[in-house]
Each structure stands twice: as C-alpha cells, then as structure tokens.
Simulated assay, not measured.
Amino acid sequence: MSTAFTFPGQGSQAVGMGRDLADAFAEAREVFGAVDDALDQRLSTIMWEGPEDELTLTANAQPALMAVSMAVMRVMEKGGISLKDKVSYVAGHSLGEYSALCAAGTFTLADTARLLRIRGNAMQAAVPVGEGAMAAIIGLPAEDVEAVCSEAADGAICQIANDNGGGQLVISGNKTAVEKAANLATEKGAKRAMMLPVSAPFHSALMAPAAERMGEALAQVAKKRPEVPVIPNVAVSPITDPEDITARLVEQVTGRVRWRETVEWFGRNEVHTLYEIGSGKVLTGLARRIDRQIHGITVNSPADIEAAMKALA
C-alpha cells in the first residue's frame, strides 16, 4: 500500500486559517510572508483577521488556501518528511491542483501565488455577475444529472462541474439553465438540489476566457517535472511532463473536477492512505464516502503535523 497527499479547493477557507501554524513554526511564517510579497498584499492579515467576505473573494481564497497547504508542507519538510521518499502521488481539488504541483516542485511558491491570483481574477471576470450559477445535486446518479443538464440547456450552457463522490454532483452554467436543471433534478428524484452562493459558473464552458488567460500565464512561468506524479482533475491518470501538466491545468478551467474518479483510482492502485494537506477536512470526508477502504487523514494544525510526521517517519 502507498500514500498520496491531497490538497483542498475553494470552500475550505475560514478566517483564522494558518494562524496557529504561523505562531508555532518559523517555516510557516516564511511561507505566508513570501506569498504576501509575491502578491504585494497582506493576504495573511485577511486570512487571520478577515473580513470573511474579503477572504471569500475568489482572487484571495485561492492563493490563501495554497499558502496554508504549503506552510504545512514546509514544516513537514523541515521535520524530515521528503515528498519523493514518502508519497507516491499528489492531487488537488480544483485550485488544489496548483498546491499539489507547488508541493511537488513544479512551480515555485511565488509563481504559484501569482498564478492563482491571475486564475481567480480571470474566472471572476469571465462572466458578468448574475449571468452564471452553480447548483449542488444530491442523490441522483451522474447519468441522470447529465440528462437533466442536457434537457435544461436548450442552447445555453449547463454541465457537471464537480463529481465529488458520495452522491454529490455540482452543475454549472447559465443561471436560467442551472435553475431549470435543479428543478428537473428534484422532479427526477434527487434528495436535494440547491443553488450555491458562488460568484461565477466555475468549471463550465463559460470559463473559456479564463482558460485562455491561464494558458498565457502558464506559458510565462518556469516549470519542473514534479518529484512525484500528479493526478490531474480532468484526466485521472498520473502525469509528470510539464507541458502535459500545463495543458491539463488549462483544460481544468472549463472541465470537470473528477474527484470521485480520482479517489477510486487511488483505491484501485493500492493507495489507501490520503493525507489532506491544508485548510479544512472536506477531502477527507469525501474520501470516506467514496471508498471505505481508504484512510483519510487531515493535516492542518501543529498537532496534526506532529502526528503525521510520526506516522510517515
């Protein structure tokens, strides 16, 4: 059996995130300072003190989540945990894929912070406010959700954005189409269909302008082969070639986050321990619902780090 490190996506942010790490570890403070410098902004102050609505902004939440993940990584590295010696694969949920690649050495910390700031701004700007929407569909098979999206689209955009597992799918696209799809899903027997309080229709074809912008930004950034293979959201198979990684990151902006399939891939390939590196515990909960044979471990506090380092030693 082997181990993978996974990295959380948007929605795992919370005011106060990373403060305990900064108080306890110089390596964490260095990460937060470097991200602040890269963005020319005291992002760490927003992370620790809020206000919450400012932290929740896509352009802030994305680099903030990466910063906490990398603070955990740097502390563990200082404690003697080498990614290439202890971990077989890395993966991240949406923006978490950038955190995974930073942890694996593909991107520098400063470049990752700047890429995520560009990504957040580009995704927000891709669609005028109010024209796009997302909804969570609970308890309806994926093929039925696909059918609902097709029926509701009627020339507009409506597609599955996230397959999170545990019977949870998220749809994204034009607001009227998504609202219609949510109603149809309820009629077809979904346990729940709820509109999400998001600022843009992420992971849909409406994000094409953002995908183009990320292609331009990624072309200008130095990339190294990751120390361990990454499992990209849109492909669900290990990759290490920097150009392949770039292509998958661009595709990810408009493509589906295939998290259920990612966890299932881990299970089929004897990866039975997943350490969730960073803020929150969303991915640990999802892993438990997707495959009961997989052991999920959350690592985001000083005590978590100490326990993880003992287990991995």
Rank of each mutant, 00 (worst) to 15 (best):
A181V: 07
G11H: 00
L184C: 02
A303D: 15
H272G: 11
E97A: 08
S44H: 06
Q41G: 01
R288F: 03
R192E: 15
V230R: 10
D85R: 10
E179D: 15
A24F: 12
A222Q: 14
A61W: 05
A113G: 08
V257T: 09
A235H: 04
G16Y: 01
E264Y: 01
E261W: 02
R19P: 12
I160R: 00
V271L: 10
L101W: 10
G167H: 00
I305C: 04
V170C: 12
A210K: 01
L109Q: 05
A64E: 07
A211M: 11
V263C: 06
K84F: 01
E179W: 00
Q124D: 15
M66I: 09
P201L: 13
K86M: 10
A147P: 11
N300T: 11
K188S: 14
N162V: 00
S199I: 10
L95F: 05
A59I: 08
P242L: 10
M73N: 14
Q168K: 09
A181P: 02
G280A: 07
A193M: 08
S94E: 14
G79N: 06
I46F: 03
E143I: 05
K281T: 14
S279W: 09
A211T: 07
L101P: 13
E54V: 12
T6C: 15
M73F: 11
A182W: 01
P229N: 12
A135W: 06
A313N: 14
T240G: 11
E264Q: 14
D241T: 06
T246N: 10
F32L: 11
A205G: 05
Q159F: 03
E216C: 00
T284F: 04
T6W: 14
V271F: 03
I171T: 02
A190S: 08
L169H: 09
P242G: 02
T273H: 08
T176W: 05
W48H: 15
T298V: 06
Q252I: 10
G16H: 10
E179Q: 15
F107G: 11
S44M: 05
L95K: 02
R225Y: 09
P302Q: 13
E276K: 02
E216N: 04
S94F: 01
D20Q: 12
A133H: 06
F107S: 14
A156P: 00
I305N: 01
N269H: 13
G18Q: 08
S172M: 11
L55E: 12
N60K: 07
P238Y: 01
E212V: 09
M17A: 00
A303G: 04
R29N: 06
G166D: 08
D20W: 02
E97P: 11
G11Q: 06
S12K: 03
E131K: 10
G167R: 04
A181F: 04
V230K: 00
G173N: 09
Q252H: 07
S150Q: 12
C102N: 11
V170P: 00
E187T: 03
M73Y: 10
P63N: 10
V75H: 07
I290C: 08
V148L: 02
A208E: 15
E270M: 03
P8F: 00
V90H: 04
V253F: 03
A100G: 15
D40I: 07
